[in-house]
Design a protein around this nucleic acid. Structure first.
Lengths: 258, 258
DNA sequence: GTTCAATGGATCACAATCAGACCATTGGCT
DNA sequence: AGCCAATGGTCTGATTGTGATCCATTGAAC
């Protein structure tokens, strides 16, 4: 007998999960494949974005699991992978814990999706411009000003050509921008900015690192901070836009030519 | 193989669960409780935002399940609940399917979270202002212009005081704004706008409906469309901002006083 | 009126995940 | 030296969600 089964729609399946699913997905989808992979991705993201710098200790497993909203068992699977990959190292006992030992290396495999590039880059422009304008319009507390300036200063690190140095710079750079997003006091904006920034970083990992750009970048940061502290909202917005557009040009130049 | 027909005891577990967990979460968390609840929420959202208007047919289950990224079994559980709630009705057979029969009524229960209000309202301002500016800067195709105008026109519906009419208006209003977001061609922006809009709608459901506001609102829409078609990006941005601020005032006025 | 493709309805075995209790280790403190 | 609180390590039973099939119904087309 002939079975007009349900075949038609099988493709949707979850096999492609791993890198692919996460790469394209803009929001943290309900289940980007499976929870385990999502957890790893989440941890890597936090590290790449400089939430935990090299040498920092992660929160205790029970706490971290709660933050990521995942069971401790699953978190441990993920941590275990990261440990094998050499990204973190774990010590037991009181005062033990999980520390970041190295920045994760980029997955340079996956192909370049021009749609993804366009989306990420344009969305970033929106978010960061808005964030800069808003923060410039706020009255920052002393502590907030310090945080901002500190984040900016840290980007001026001695910079070699090693992959580690580059990753390190990326993390600090990301942290600077995310600091601005946080200072808006709009959690959704912070959240969106983090996600988007991570996507940009993933793209940046696929193009050659332009050393001469770093200084320029940092100089822009400095001017941006200045504009913010001066309450010059329009200048801040313009600077943020220019900064984002710089990255955009770079990425498009290298990636659009395939 | 023997298949006993009566199941009957399946869906015991899930009644009260979600409310607490879901209430607080702003971003679509990895798992907002469980997949089943997420699925319901996702469907309700699509309906409230006017993606499927009353009378529209939802995609076939297999397809819809793939879209939401859940298994068909889970989707069916959710649809079954919606059916019981009278939101959709289902017909079998070829040319059958699931049609929207009524707009879901608001859950007026949960308390008001001022943080949520602030976050949603401010994020919306950012997104919609940016969207308006971008779309005004684009060259729209004939079809796109028509879509935009049609979405605007539909908001001018005859409006009674019934809860249904109000929900209907909300759906059309949402659809108009989301149409603009879509026209930016930035999927992340569309996505974020939809999520945020839904949060705003949820808040609007908690305050009295101001009838005299509707006309004003629609007039603003009209002017916004005009500015967009005129390629006047700054005017469009300003109008969008004013429109969003109107809602903001309204919400703050009613809700901040607790 | 028969056919048939599209669509909803149902069941089952299995893998993923969770919840939470309990064990093992560590190093500062008394 | 011994205690003990904080932290990672391990186990187990229950629940949820999936993937794969197969069944049932419908109405347009022939």
């Amino acid at each position: 007998m002939d079975r007009n089964d349900d075949d038609g729609s099988r493709e949707s399946g979850r096999e492609g999960t791993g890198s692919g699913a996460e790469a394209a997905g803009r929001p943290p989808r309900l289940r980007g494949g499976n929870v385990f992979e999502h957890t790893i991705a989440e941890l890597l993201r936090a590290i790449r974005l400089g939430k935990y710098l090299v040498g920092d200790k992660l929160p205790p497993e029970r706490e971290l699991a709660a933050q990521i909203n995942v069971s401790r068992a699953t978190l441990r699977q993920a941590l275990s992978e990261l440990q094998i990959a050499g990204v973190v190292s774990v010590r037991r006992g009181r005062y033990g814990g999980t520390v970041v030992t190295a920045l994760p290396s980029a997955d340079t495999d996956a192909g370049i999706d021009l749609g993804e590039l366009d989306d990420a880059v344009r969305f970033r422009l929106i978010l960061e411009t808005a964030a800069a304008r808003i923060v410039a319009g706020r009255d920052l507390s002393e502590a907030e000003r310090e945080t901002l300036v500190a984040a900016e200063q840290r980007c001026w690190m001695p910079l070699g050509s090693s992959a580690e140095d580059i990753e390190q710079f990326r993390a600090l750079d990301a942290r600077f921008h995310l600091t601005i997003a946080e200072l808006t006091g709009i959690p959704s904006l912070t959240q969106a900015a983090a996600t988007t920034r991570d996507r940009i970083n993933a793209l940046l990992d696929r193009i050659p690192f332009i050393h001469t750009n770093v200084e320029h970048s940092c100089a822009q940061h400095a001017r941006l901070v200045e504009a913010i502290l001066d309450h010059d909202a329009e200048a801040a917005a313009t600077l943020a836009a220019q900064h984002a557009e710089g990255t955009e040009q770079l990425l498009r130049g290298f990636l659009e030519g395939k």
